[in-house]
Amino acid sequence: MIDRLNTFIRKVPTWFVYLIGALPAPWLLYLALTGGLGVEPIKALEHELGELALQLLIVGLAITPLRRFAKLNLLKFRRAIGLLAFFYVALHLLVWLVLDVQILSQIWADILKRPYITVGMAAFALMVPLAVTSNNWSLRKLGARWRKLHQLTYVAVLLGALHFVMLVKGFQIEPLIYMAVVLALLATRVKVKRALFAQRS
């Protein structure tokens, strides 16, 4: 079953994943322009883009554990998923800057003064070098350092989930579920490291 799935996955071209993954962006924009996102389309669009980014980051984080524990090999799509996540984070930020806050002085004040925005901005900043080095040339050039650099993903996803937890009013379940999933996926990394460490000593 898994073998057949892996054979099928090998046949799916990565451009197809880019295409499918990018489709929600024009669709959401269309909905926002035509009233499909409700009375307040700016906040709705901002939220949808942010949530998509977080979901993609989680999918990206799940690829290694899926391979290890379920023998499901999605490795060839990891770059596409990471770059798509960055694409949605960038759009989310753009909507916030241009459509939501609008006022430049307030943007700076918000980034510095509001912890949940500081956290979100930090996550975005961490993703920039990752997106820039998501190509074969950088991979060759950086060698072992590339792996090290791309472990920043862990921090970025954690900050992204924290950003969501911090921004809601009252006690809400949804962001906590995201945070729990992120922590669980990160925990699989910690265990492996410990195991490796134990073997070596």
Binding site: V39, V101, Q102, D110, R114, P115, M166
Partner: peptide
């Protein structure tokens, strides 16, 4: 007096669509 997590200096009137100004 700002809310600790956002500014209260401006507001967005609802009904202005995707390009509503604050």
């Amino acid at each position: 007096v700002d809310h600790p997590r956002w500014s209260q200096a401006t507001e967005r009137p609802l009904g202005g669509g995707l390009f509503a100004r604050r």
